[in-house]
Design a binder for these strands. Sequence first.
RNA 1: AGGGGCGUAGCUCAGUGGUAGAGCAGCGGCCUUUUAAGCCGUUGGUCGUGGGUUCGAUCCCCACCGCCCCUACCA
Length: 525
Amino acid sequence: MPFEPLDQYRQRQKNLEEIVKLGEEAYPHRFDFTHTPAGLVDQYGSKSHDELEVEKPPVRISGRVVALRGHGKAGFAHLLGGGKRIQIYVKLDVVGERGFQLFHLLDLGDLVGLEGRMFRTRTGELSVWVTSLRLLAKALLPLPEKWHGLVDVELRFRQRYLDLIANDRVREVFLKRAEIIREMRRFFDARGFLEVETPMMHPIAGGAVARPFVTHHKTLDLDLYLRIAPELYLKRLIVGGLDRVYEINRNFRNEGISFKYNPEFTMLEYYQAYADYNDAMQLTEDLLKGLAQKVVGSHQVRYGDLTLDFSRMERLTMREAIARHWPAAAGAPPAPVEFARPDAVRAAALRYNVYARSQNLDPIPGIESASSGVLTGLLFEHVAERYLVQPTFLYDFPVEMSPLSKCRADDPSLTERFEMFVAGMEIANGFSELNDPEEQERRFAEQVAAGGDEVPRQVDMDYVRALAHGMPPTAGEGIGIDRLAMLLTDSHSIREVILFPLLRPEASAAPPADISPPHPAGPKA
RNA sequence: AGGGGCGUAGCUCAGUGGUAGAGCAGCGGCCUUUUAAGCCGUUGGUCGUGGGUUCGAUCCCCACCGCCCCUACCA
């Protein structure tokens, strides 16, 4: 089936027919090459004109035609391959009548293979002197504009393949993302962690607080949830004696979409037996420093107007963060120790709300009914979160918002939990794991009793049973790879670091009407 | 979900209440070291969709669709 633009599609079909008439195969099966275009640039980029004339290095390359300049009985083109462009020079009296006809029938976007030798043109550009040429695959659709590339955000995400061809930076971002993940694997493998895979479909959506996606298994007649976190399965493995495990995989949360949220996102989650949250913070610091150095080449990472300094990471308790960033106009900041007194927390929240209303900011909701731990968390979000720009460990979270974390020995209202914030975004979340089965069951039961879409409907008794078999003291952490990739590639939307972010389906690509019920607003076809 | 913005040729973008424009791409020519190649000629549009106001709407108004930004939920 032809696609728009029809005239160009038809024209290219015609060109393909002409090429076949020349005796060329339309879609040949393979092509042996000695270099990619990028490989040529790397290998011969420093060779002078004279050196190349002496060596005349023979090469075979393949690539996509991204520029064409005819010159009568000769012509230039650029081939894109391996992320770089190499110029080729095609001369009638070198490639012959048939070869030159083929060259003339090429369109921008075609994939070609060729044989030739390296040389430099009069203007000094490294080029391939083509001696023979063949079509490897036809592009029946035109490329985006050669100078401005593809700009339209929607098109870029829907047709990412064009984005990757037209925008060099996009390719770079995804190469770096792969490098980040590779380095993370190397980091954990080197420390004796075992990479594992745990279920993506869960009978109980546990391990985090989020609204899950639901699916159904026919044979078992079983509703399943796409996992919101792998946590409870990974900790079962710790019980099983796999003392250091990690998993890199997708989580799915049926929540909003924004510059830092995509419904499916990639997380690295690891668990380390006989360690606590201080070890986890140290590990995180080592990991992030190494990543910045490896991927960006420095601990100083440019992020828009910011320079993020990964060489030193601040550590602040949640209570300290609130006190530090308390708005001056809201009166004296509450002292961190006051947060131990519920009435003082409530008073601080009320005081903040007076200030918020006067500044036309969103007030903290539900002060009367919320526990002091929850209020502390809300105060943090309202007062401090956005100011955590430089890499910062925020730690000692209220127990009410941390159902899987172990409490501090000296203060049961706080848990040994931390989050890493960078550029106002939560990048990581880790804690000393709660391993007391009876306390875990109580906390689960409280969650279930509280109810809501974002909370499991039943206690995961198998997990509690696993803890009852004894889980060593353990530290665990989840690290958001998409957001980390944003930071290290200076990307300001999560969609820039996810190859195919979720979009509404195109109307023209929608399923046929017989399997898709008409929209309540009326039929669209 | 609420508020704001955007939607014009395949791509990148101008523009106007009175029959729609450029560059690139395309098509036909010329050109054997060019490079955003150049030169001559040329095709291509239900101006997102549907209503309304108007003698007349791509432009003004309303609704819908899609995308972007902000806010809310959330990592």
